[in-house]
Design a protein around this nucleic acid. Structure first.
Lengths: 339, 339
DNA sequence: TTGTATGCGTTATCAA
DNA sequence: TTGATAACGCATACAA
């Protein structure tokens, strides 16, 4: 039982396919009587337009491709929520692909999306993406890309981010003003811009407040396992230093890893060591002590990126020029009991 | 700059489109010399096959549709991870749609997926889906559907679930054997099967152990906001009863909501009131006290559902019959400090 | 107002 | 071994 086609309807009504098509699309040059007949028959035969055919004909798929490092991250699932909702609002569907923080995979996924002829692409880069030729190659083909969160500053396309450096600066400044002096930083991989920027913000805050920057207090969390990275590095940190009084982390989950280790070793938070996270995921308010953090608006980031992307697609379709924009979403500090 | 097509390659090489197509697909009836030439030219011209055209021609899209209530749930994001990974393994792409626990939306999304001509559909039902005509309508058209987690027992299709009733039974039995006697249950909406089954397991455990079932100890969490449902109902529960010594919840997040309220009111866990959750999400081991829970293998559920679905698609394509299967994934209790 | 014809990019059949 | 041709389902320019 194949799905009904325009041809079937036309045949049934003894009219042409063209007329059926026009009637269904509400064109004005169709008599209201035939239009009515077509609509009725379409309903009767349970006609469901074949998007694939439409796509081939119209040369657009009304589909967006998304590449994220991993969907099992509260932040990214919030972004996805925003993307899917905004896309839906404009009649777009979304195909989700994961890079697993793997450059080779990221490249492959990009090709898949091209094959699928998606109208545009949203991407948050993987940690080990060393260059951006694969991104630029697509941009060159006039397929619009919007980068969010983990972006590449050098690529010329629209971006949606937060001011990672400033946010980190504010968080660390808060710690300093609270009286903490030996502040460690658990940073992310060396590559990603967000990781670099948060580190720079941390360092600048120290320097601006007259605290010497000590590279030995910086620990790298790059095993794609934030919780255990936090836990293990906390152990290491305590073995190497006995004067740390606060830690600023790249991620809330890293902070939670630290928290677990500190608790196990009866180190009081924040009396002995204060904690300040990043992302402000839901659980941060629930753990004990509740975790201070920087808000990172994932849902908004997804919505905004999608909105920009769809605008660009529209411009391309209409042949009107547009310029790339970089949207910086605001963040704020949420002070809780851990600092 | 339009993408290269077979025609372009054929034109460049002065051969026919048919030959190019065959060469690219590795057919045997092409001389190795022309094959080589085609491959070379394809690479040179950066040929990327147009999947849309292939889809129209072959009448399949190599695309799966997924409908879940919401992606911003740790459990569902794990399921999605499993789905995407398994689909990728077989060369399928996945389109993700959310029902927002809304029946009307669920119906619409299903139609969208039909229009997209997805080869198969994975779905976890919304809470307020009152009947399954929309599901059956698709099944009738020979589009395979696999239901997971929130399924409808009456629909004839493959399903991947856990034994919710048994899991709940085991959890509550554990509590009883530990000595708890007045055990409340924070259940989910009235509609979904998982919610019903977990409740039935709870009740059966009580009865089997000679503890009278008291409907007044059952609180309903159906505002799609587990944390606050837990928090608010905890308040209500304490106002209405002063003898509760344990609570079994439909979800870990509900339990965390309760936990927050109990902590705020200096009620000791588990000394005054014990807690037992469901789903065993990552954070349950980290909060204080750590939360006992039932494991719910989201990733596996996604993988298995997808595997079954793709098998069914294959059968349909080959015209060989297949029978629906219901796969029950094992669960286990994880005992932590909250009970 | 309706219909004819063409093409979107492939694949596949059949003839050369 | 190669190529001409039709078809997948639809949209649209143009003719009637």
């Amino acid at each position: 039982m194949k799905p009904t086609t325009l041809k079937d309807i036309a045949h049934e009504l003894n009219i042409s396919v063209a007329t059926v098509s026009k009637a269904l699309k509400g064109y004005s040059d169709v008599s209201s009587s035939t239009k009515k007949a077509v609509l009725k028959m379409a309903k009767k035969m349970n006609y469901i337009p074949n998007t694939v055919a439409v796509n081939l004909r119209t040369q657009q798929t009304k589909t967006l491709g998304v590449i994220i490092p991993a969907i099992v991250h509260h932040f990214f699932s919030e972004v996805m929520d925003g993307i899917i909702k905004e896309a839906k609002k404009h009649g777009y569907l979304v195909i989700t692909l994961q890079s697993n923080e793997n450059y080779q995979l990221e490249k492959k996924q990009l090709i898949l999306l091209q094959q699928k002829r998606v109208d545009g692409i949203l991407i948050s880069l993987s940690n080990d993406t060393p260059n951006f030729d694969h991104i630029n190659a697509i941009l060159q083909k006039k397929i619009p890309i919007v980068m969010f969160d983990k972006i590449a500053k050098l690529v010329e396309c629209s971006k949606v981010v937060i001011d990672d450096k400033l946010a980190a600066y504010n968080a660390v400044s808060y710690l300093i003003e609270k009286g903490y002096k030996r502040i460690a930083h658990f940073r992310g991989s060396l590559n990603p811009q967000i990781s670099i920027d948060r580190f720079l913000g941390y360092r600048k805050a120290l320097v601006d407040h007259g605290i010497p920057f000590d590279p030995k207090l910086v620990y790298i969390c790059d095993n794609n396992d934030d919780f255990n990275d936090g836990y293990n590095n906390a152990k290491k940190m305590l073995e190497e230093h006995n004067d740390i009084d606060a830690v600023f982390t790249i991620t809330d989950v890293v902070a939670v890893g630290i928290l677990k280790y500190l608790k196990e070793n009866d180190i009081k938070i924040p009396e002995d060591i204060a904690l300040f996270g990043f992302s402000n995921w839901f659980m941060s308010s629930v753990i004990t002590p509740s975790l201070s953090s920087v808000t990172q608006p994932g849902f908004k980031m997804g919505k905004k990126s999608t909105k920009i992307l769809i605008e660009e697609i529209k411009c391309i379709n209409k042949g009107i020029p547009y310029s790339f924009q970089t949207c910086v979403l605001p963040t704020s500090l949420v002070i809780r009991n851990s600092s």
